[in-house]
Structures are given as C-alpha cells and as structure tokens.
Design a protein around this nucleic acid. Structure first.
Lengths: 169, 169
DNA sequence: CGGCAGTATATAAATGTTTATATACTACGA
DNA sequence: TCGTAGTATATAAACATTTATATACTGCCG
C-alpha cells in the first residue's frame, strides 16, 4: 500500500494536514504518486490508529480547525522498511499514454494536430517545473525535455510524410 | 474506462484472445497500460455484450479452446471517440517512482547503491527495447536513454558528495 | 445580506485493479 | 505414470481509487 508510505515520507519532511498533503501530492508530479482527498483522509485515520502518526488540532485562520499530523518513531521505521524494498522500472499506466500509443491509427492531420497540442502541453509543464533541487525533480525535468525533443522529431516526420503524400506529389 | 478502449485498439490491429491481449499489454510498456488477465476476461465479456467485439471459438494446438475476438464497426466507432478525447501530460503513479522521490532520505551509501541498481535495471530494459517502429516506442526508448543519463549524473554527484564527506576530508 | 471562493474535513457509492484460486488441455521428462 | 511447464479461460474476494455529496468556517464583493 504505497499511499500510506508516501504520506509518511511527506510527513517526515514536515508535519501537515490532510489538505496540505493533498496539495503537495498534486503539486509535485516528481513524487510519482497522486491521490484524492477522499483517499487521503481515511489513510491518515488508519495511520493514526496504527500509531504511525500523531495528531494535533489547530485552529485555522481560514476555515474549520485543521488536524495536523506528525510522523512518529514507528512511522519512520515503517517508512524506512518500505523505502528499502527493491526498485523496479515503473510501467506507465495512463490514459494519455495509451492515446499516444495509438497515434498511428489517426489520420495524418489528426496525428499532427495531436502532436502539436501535446508539445504545447509539454512546454507549459516545463515552464511550471523549476530546475530540480532533488534527484527526482531533476529526473522529471530531463524527461520532460526529452519528450519535447521527441514531439519535435515526430512533428517533423509527420510533416515530411505529409509532403510525400499522394495529393502533394 | 481506458482498459476496454485499449483492448479495442489492440483488436483493431488484429483479432486476438484474452490471453494474447494480456501478453501484448505486459509485453509492450510503450502502450502505457497494463492489466491482469483477471481484469481482461470480464472486460472482453462486457465488450461482447455491448456489441463492440465479436467472438469466434477456435481449438488451440496447446491447451483449452481459444476464444478469439475481433473488433466490430461499433467497436471501431467507440474506439475513435475515445481516441479523440483531449490529450494531457500523464501524471506518473508508481511505487518505484515514489521510492526514487525519497532518495534523499537515505544514507549516501544506500542512495548510491539504489542509483547503481536502478541504472542496471534501465540498461537491461534498454537492451530489451528495440529501436522504435511507432511514435510511442520511439518515445519510450528516448525516455529510457534519458533516464540512464540521469542515473549516471546522480551517481557522479553522489560520488563527489562522498568525497567531500567529513570522514574523507 | 446573500452568494461565492477558498480552506478544511469527511463519508458513501461506484468503479477499477490485484491477488488467490480453480479448471482444462497438451507435451515432455523423470 | 506422475509431476511440471506452458497455454487458456474464469470467478471471488480483497484492496485501491475516483466521483459525488455533505458540512463548516472566513472573508470579500455586489
């Protein structure tokens, strides 16, 4: 169960509320994990019952009282055990990738349009991704830059393919 | 529901059994999707009931009779609609990535060992990844090559950090 | 004052995915 | 002949994730 361990990892950096953890997860794609609040709140309750985190209630300047969690010694132990499990090459699992995998099923025009759109998305993402301060962030940035070069190469290939198409010869 | 659409996409290339589809999914990480057979068989039954695929039973040279599916016109229509949905930048979601994201929490020795292991895994994966014949496969290969360069850079940084550590100064 | 936006927590229902288990057919080697 | 490996299908149970919905508190704008 990785979500609980990722939450422990984040709480190891600083105490946080469920809301904070949700923001950090969705705000940092380099973490390699994401979750809805509806999943985070029950996960924190389980961690609390298990003694892996401790709770402190604090009133919030805005909104209802916050429930801030900090990691316990047992939590750190549990996190380290998870961290020690063997690494693997992650197998991607995303609808957007599956769509890219079937690019060849589209008409040359639609393919080109999709590639150009994807390129725009990539460069936007890159502007929101500051040069990395951690290994995982540096990795993420390098991968985005590579994807950008890939998209450019595919766009070029798509254009030269178009030039060679029957109507244009 | 992406699994059903990915299956339709694969069946659009050639008719196949559930077993075949399972092998193709796990055999081609560039597809960006993976699933267990226990998920594939019910999905095919739903596609069949919906009229998106048609079934032909064939006896197998080895093992029990195969149930081979081919895509129907309705299936192609459904697939194209899914393919036309807007692209996004995929947010990675994998335990291995989450572990990499907490590399800094490990001791310099453990960090270095993890990076070296990951490097080995990457180069193995690359040898099993022939130069791409589709856009998605070319993308996958470029990303693996970039990850390899990232791992080398992090290993180098880790080593120079070690050189500067108190005991060695 | 009323509604909206942002912060904050929470639960139920629906959906998707993995793990465990069972069955069946063939070929091959011990 | 018996076990094992590979091919092939299938279901139940457990687990994970998303979507929908509800509540509450604050400040701001109209």
């Amino acid at each position: 169960m990785s979500l609980a361990h990722v939450l422990l990892g984040l709480l190891g950096r600083a105490p946080a509320s469920g809301w904070d953890l949700g923001s950090r997860l969705t705000g940092d794609p380099a973490l390699g994990w994401n979750a809805e609040l509806a999943q985070i709140y029950p996960a924190l309750q389980r961690l609390l019952r298990g003694g892996f985190v401790a709770l402190r209630r604090r009133r919030s300047p805005k909104g209802p009282p916050r429930r801030e969690y900090r990691i316990t010694a047992a939590g750190r132990r549990e996190f380290r055990e998870w961290l020690d499990e063997p690494l693997e090459i992650p197998k991607p699992h995303a609808a957007a990738l599956a769509r890219l995998a079937f690019l060849e099923k589209r008409s040359p025009e639609a393919r080109l349009a999709a590639l150009k759109l994807y390129r725009v998305l990539l460069s936007e993402e890159l502007t929101h991704t500051p040069p990395g301060t951690t290994a995982a962030r540096r990795r993420r940035r390098m991968l985005l830059e590579t994807e950008l070069r890939w998209a450019d190469a595919e766009i070029a290939a798509s254009l030269s393919g178009r030039t060679l198409s029957p109507e244009e010869r």
